[in-house]
């Protein structure tokens, strides 16, 4: 083969690779992140790509990624879980109630003295979340209510319970603020805190569960073809129970995250979060029709969403009004869905 032919073959191969990369949602999201990083670094006059700002972006990411992961499992089965935001509120409130009303503690307990109580808050929140997930599964499996309506009902019920339990007020309890502060290693400030690190580990584990285990395989199978799943000997009801309990448990942990972030359990801690979780899932490339989705895409999609949120606030060269920010986020979601649709039509 002559050199020119090799060059041509190499160029074709490179072109094919680039095309393949852009047909991949995750690669596209990485490129988007890089572009956003450069644009915001310039427009913020050099303060966007700093550990402080990235720390805030990752802190927001930590608040929402657990819900996005929860939503991913559910959406892949062809369902939806609208109750995750209300579960965040309820679980943080119950955790706050246990510490403040149950144990008689208040916000004066801080630092390492508060750590055991924070861990108790995490445990309580997880239990609350698992319970909500079990209720959702019961409504879907036993009462045969479609997931949208079932989780809409629990969303209302859990939001109401959070108000009843808290009396509508934030329950300010013991907190170790250090857990949410980014690490400083040998004088070098990192953008990652203990809480964010914990969330990254949970996300990686969930990714492995989704893509490398039988449980994940059954989740995809259920969303692709529930009849074939049943024919293969997999019980859809059992799988739905596991998936919705996982979703509830993750939402419960997001409630614990909110408690640690704010030092309080409040009925508004999860306000509107379910919609951002769904948006992150869509941007991350999960098909709302079920059966399709990758955890890497979800992690990146959520990161894109909160990079935009923080980045627009950091812009200095022009004033980006909060209303314009909402429009830009909405356009981002539309663009993500449009890319998915184009990819599908391209594959056909």
């Amino acid at each position: 083969m002559s050199n020119s032919k090799q060059d041509t073959a190499g160029k074709l191969s490179l072109l094919t690779q680039v095309k393949a990369s852009f047909s991949n949602q995750s690669a596209l999201l990485v490129v988007t992140l890089v572009v956003l990083g450069v644009v915001f670094q310039i427009t913020s006059q050099g303060i966007f790509l700093t550990t402080n700002t990235l720390g805030t972006v990752l802190n927001d990411w930590g608040s929402y990624i657990l819900l996005a992961v929860a939503q991913t499992f559910v959406v892949i089965t062809g369902g939806i879980d609208l109750s995750v935001g209300a579960t965040v509120s309820l679980s943080s409130v119950v955790a706050g109630w246990v510490l403040v009303r149950g144990l008689g503690l208040d916000s004066t307990t801080t630092g390492s003295d508060a750590t055991p109580y924070v861990l108790l808050a995490v445990f309580v929140s997880l239990m609350v979340g698992l319970t909500v997930g079990a209720i959702n599964a019961f409504l879907i499996n036993v009462l045969r209510i479609v997931p949208f309506i079932a989780t809409l009902a629990t969303m209302g019920a859990m939001a109401g319970l959070a108000i009843i339990i808290s009396g509508g007020m934030p329950l300010q309890g013991p907190n170790n603020w250090e857990l949410g502060i980014p690490y400083n290693v040998f004088g070098i400030q990192l953008p990652i805190s203990t809480t964010v690190l914990a969330v990254i580990i949970i996300t990686v584990i969930c990714g492995l569960v989704l893509h490398k285990t039988k449980f994940g395989l059954h989740t995809f199978a259920l969303g692709s073809n529930s009849f074939a799943t049943r024919a293969a000997g997999i019980s859809p009801a059992k799988q739905i129970t596991k998936v919705y309990m996982l979703s509830g448990g993750l939402a419960g942990l997001a409630g614990a995250y909110a408690y640690i972030r704010l030092g309080a359990g409040s009925p508004s801690n999860g306000s509107g979060m379910e919609l951002y979780a769904i948006a992150a899932v869509v941007i991350g490339g999960v098909s709302l029709m079920g059966g399709v989705g990758r955890m890497v895409g979800i992690a990146l999609g959520t990161l894109v969403l909160f990079t935009v949120q923080s980045g627009l606030l950091m812009v200095k060269v022009v004033t980006v009004s909060p209303s314009l920010k909402q429009v830009i986020v909405a356009l981002l979601i539309v663009a993500a869905v449009a890319v998915q649709t184009l990819q599908k039509s391209g594959r056909k």
Binding site: L262, M273, M314
Partner: peptide
Amino acid sequence: SNPQTANSNVNNWLTK
């Protein structure tokens, strides 16, 4: 109406 969003806004302002 979400205190976590309010928290994020303030954190960004402290840098900006």
